[in-house]
Amino acid sequence: MGEENVPSSIVQFAQLDSLLNLGRANSLWPMTFGLACCAIEMMCTGGSRYDISRFGAEVFRPSPRQSDVMIVAGTINKKLELAVKTLYDQMPEPKWVIAMGNCAISGGPFKVKENYNVVEGADKLFPVDVYIPGCPPRPEALLEGIMTLEEKITGKRRWPRVDPG
Protein backbone atom coordinates (compact mmCIF):
# COMPACT_ATOMS: atom_id res chain seq x y z
CA MET A 1 0.00 0.00 0.00
CA GLY A 2 1.18 3.49 -0.81
CA GLU A 3 0.54 6.74 1.00
CA GLU A 4 -2.74 6.75 2.85
CA ASN A 5 -5.15 9.64 2.68
CA VAL A 6 -6.91 9.18 6.00
CA PRO A 7 -9.73 11.70 6.32
CA SER A 8 -9.91 13.79 9.47
CA SER A 9 -12.68 15.79 11.07
CA ILE A 10 -13.09 19.53 10.63
CA VAL A 11 -12.95 20.36 14.34
CA GLN A 12 -10.19 18.76 16.34
CA PHE A 13 -9.61 19.04 20.07
CA ALA A 14 -7.23 16.62 21.71
CA GLN A 15 -9.42 16.03 24.76
CA LEU A 16 -12.58 15.66 22.69
CA ASP A 17 -10.85 13.34 20.24
CA SER A 18 -9.69 11.07 23.01
CA LEU A 19 -13.24 11.01 24.36
CA LEU A 20 -14.65 10.17 20.92
CA ASN A 21 -12.02 7.51 20.43
CA LEU A 22 -12.90 6.00 23.78
CA GLY A 23 -16.49 5.75 22.61
CA ARG A 24 -15.47 4.28 19.28
CA ALA A 25 -13.15 1.74 20.89
CA ASN A 26 -15.78 0.58 23.34
CA SER A 27 -18.46 0.09 20.72
CA LEU A 28 -16.75 -1.35 17.68
CA TRP A 29 -19.38 -2.57 15.26
CA PRO A 30 -18.03 -5.39 13.11
CA MET A 31 -19.49 -6.29 9.76
CA THR A 32 -21.42 -9.55 9.41
CA PHE A 33 -18.99 -10.96 6.98
CA GLY A 34 -17.23 -14.31 6.88
CA LEU A 35 -15.24 -15.79 4.05
CA ALA A 36 -14.13 -19.21 5.28
CA CYS A 37 -13.66 -21.37 8.34
CA CYS A 38 -12.35 -18.50 10.50
CA ALA A 39 -15.90 -17.14 10.30
CA ILE A 40 -17.04 -20.16 12.33
CA GLU A 41 -14.68 -19.11 15.10
CA MET A 42 -15.96 -15.55 14.75
CA MET A 43 -19.55 -16.78 15.20
CA CYS A 44 -18.41 -18.75 18.21
CA THR A 45 -16.90 -15.57 19.62
CA GLY A 46 -20.25 -13.91 19.17
CA GLY A 47 -21.99 -16.72 21.06
CA SER A 48 -22.64 -16.91 24.76
CA ARG A 49 -19.53 -18.83 25.76
CA TYR A 50 -16.96 -16.28 24.58
CA ASP A 51 -19.44 -13.40 24.42
CA ILE A 52 -17.85 -10.67 22.35
CA SER A 53 -20.42 -8.24 23.74
CA ARG A 54 -18.34 -7.99 26.91
CA PHE A 55 -16.06 -5.82 24.80
CA GLY A 56 -18.84 -3.86 23.12
CA ALA A 57 -18.26 -5.44 19.72
CA GLU A 58 -21.33 -7.64 19.51
CA VAL A 59 -23.37 -5.48 17.14
CA PHE A 60 -22.61 -7.30 13.91
CA ARG A 61 -24.04 -5.04 11.25
CA PRO A 62 -25.52 -6.47 8.05
CA SER A 63 -24.47 -3.41 6.07
CA PRO A 64 -20.98 -1.99 5.52
CA ARG A 65 -22.39 1.50 5.81
CA GLN A 66 -23.11 0.95 9.48
CA SER A 67 -19.96 -0.85 10.55
CA ASP A 68 -16.61 0.26 11.95
CA VAL A 69 -14.55 -2.91 11.78
CA MET A 70 -14.17 -5.36 8.97
CA ILE A 71 -13.05 -8.70 10.34
CA VAL A 72 -11.60 -10.45 7.31
CA ALA A 73 -12.27 -13.98 8.53
CA GLY A 74 -10.97 -16.34 5.90
CA THR A 75 -9.44 -16.84 2.51
CA ILE A 76 -9.89 -14.07 -0.04
CA ASN A 77 -10.20 -15.61 -3.48
CA LYS A 78 -9.48 -13.66 -6.61
CA LYS A 79 -13.17 -13.88 -7.46
CA LEU A 80 -14.11 -12.37 -4.11
CA GLU A 81 -11.44 -9.72 -4.23
CA LEU A 82 -13.65 -7.10 -5.85
CA ALA A 83 -16.53 -7.83 -3.49
CA VAL A 84 -14.31 -7.45 -0.42
CA LYS A 85 -12.83 -4.24 -1.79
CA THR A 86 -16.33 -2.90 -2.49
CA LEU A 87 -17.38 -3.66 1.08
CA TYR A 88 -14.29 -1.85 2.37
CA ASP A 89 -15.11 1.13 0.14
CA GLN A 90 -18.64 1.33 1.43
CA MET A 91 -17.66 1.49 5.10
CA PRO A 92 -17.73 5.06 6.42
CA GLU A 93 -14.77 6.60 8.22
CA PRO A 94 -13.35 5.89 10.72
CA LYS A 95 -12.88 2.29 9.68
CA TRP A 96 -10.54 -0.45 10.77
CA VAL A 97 -9.66 -3.87 9.44
CA ILE A 98 -8.77 -6.99 11.39
CA ALA A 99 -7.11 -9.75 9.39
CA MET A 100 -8.17 -12.93 11.14
CA GLY A 101 -6.31 -16.13 10.45
CA ASN A 102 -3.37 -17.06 8.30
CA CYS A 103 -5.25 -16.82 5.00
CA ALA A 104 -6.17 -13.20 5.63
CA ILE A 105 -2.64 -12.42 6.82
CA SER A 106 -0.61 -13.92 4.01
CA GLY A 107 -2.64 -16.48 2.10
CA GLY A 108 -1.73 -19.08 4.72
CA PRO A 109 -1.70 -22.63 3.39
CA PHE A 110 -2.48 -21.32 -0.07
CA LYS A 111 0.73 -19.33 -0.33
CA VAL A 112 2.45 -21.87 -2.54
CA LYS A 113 4.11 -21.66 -5.92
CA GLU A 114 1.09 -23.20 -7.65
CA ASN A 115 -1.36 -20.72 -6.14
CA TYR A 116 -3.33 -18.94 -8.82
CA ASN A 117 -6.61 -17.94 -7.20
CA VAL A 118 -5.98 -16.73 -3.67
CA VAL A 119 -5.09 -13.18 -2.69
CA GLU A 120 -2.03 -13.49 -0.48
CA GLY A 121 -3.14 -11.39 2.43
CA ALA A 122 -5.83 -8.79 3.04
CA ASP A 123 -3.12 -6.12 3.24
CA LYS A 124 -2.63 -6.52 -0.50
CA LEU A 125 -6.06 -4.91 -0.87
CA PHE A 126 -6.37 -2.33 1.90
CA PRO A 127 -4.56 -1.28 5.08
CA VAL A 128 -4.92 -3.77 7.92
CA ASP A 129 -4.78 -2.66 11.55
CA VAL A 130 -4.60 -5.89 13.52
CA TYR A 131 -3.35 -9.31 12.48
CA ILE A 132 -4.59 -12.35 14.39
CA PRO A 133 -2.48 -15.44 13.64
CA GLY A 134 -3.91 -18.93 13.80
CA CYS A 135 -5.46 -21.47 11.48
CA PRO A 136 -8.12 -20.71 12.59
CA PRO A 137 -7.44 -18.50 15.62
CA ARG A 138 -9.29 -19.45 18.76
CA PRO A 139 -12.09 -17.12 19.91
CA GLU A 140 -9.82 -15.87 22.68
CA ALA A 141 -7.39 -14.76 20.00
CA LEU A 142 -10.13 -12.77 18.25
CA LEU A 143 -11.04 -11.16 21.56
CA GLU A 144 -7.39 -10.29 22.05
CA GLY A 145 -7.41 -8.83 18.55
CA ILE A 146 -10.40 -6.64 19.41
CA MET A 147 -8.64 -5.49 22.56
CA THR A 148 -5.50 -4.75 20.55
CA LEU A 149 -7.58 -2.66 18.17
CA GLU A 150 -9.08 -0.81 21.15
CA GLU A 151 -5.54 -0.19 22.33
CA LYS A 152 -4.63 1.14 18.91
CA ILE A 153 -7.62 3.50 18.87
CA THR A 154 -7.39 4.89 22.39
CA GLY A 155 -3.68 4.50 23.00
CA LYS A 156 -4.13 2.59 26.23
CA ARG A 157 -5.15 -0.91 27.13
CA ARG A 158 -8.46 -1.30 28.88
CA TRP A 159 -7.95 -4.82 30.18
CA PRO A 160 -4.93 -6.26 32.01
CA ARG A 161 -2.52 -8.26 29.91
CA VAL A 162 -2.62 -11.94 30.84
CA ASP A 163 0.69 -13.65 31.40
CA PRO A 164 0.73 -16.76 29.20
CA GLY A 165 3.19 -18.57 31.46
Partner: peptide, 15 residues
Protein backbone atom coordinates in the same frame (compact mmCIF):
# COMPACT_ATOMS: atom_id res chain seq x y z
CA UNK B 1 -17.90 19.01 12.45
CA UNK B 2 -16.63 16.06 14.45
CA UNK B 3 -16.81 13.08 12.12
CA UNK B 4 -14.31 12.46 9.34
CA UNK B 5 -17.06 12.51 6.75
CA UNK B 6 -15.30 14.34 3.89
CA UNK B 7 -14.53 11.09 2.11
CA UNK B 8 -13.84 7.46 2.88
CA UNK B 9 -10.75 5.53 1.86
CA UNK B 10 -11.22 3.81 -1.47
CA UNK B 11 -9.76 0.70 -3.03
CA UNK B 12 -12.16 0.13 -5.91
CA UNK B 13 -13.99 3.47 -5.98
CA UNK B 14 -17.33 1.90 -5.24
CA UNK B 15 -18.52 3.70 -2.13
Amino acid sequence: LLSPSSHTRQTAGRA
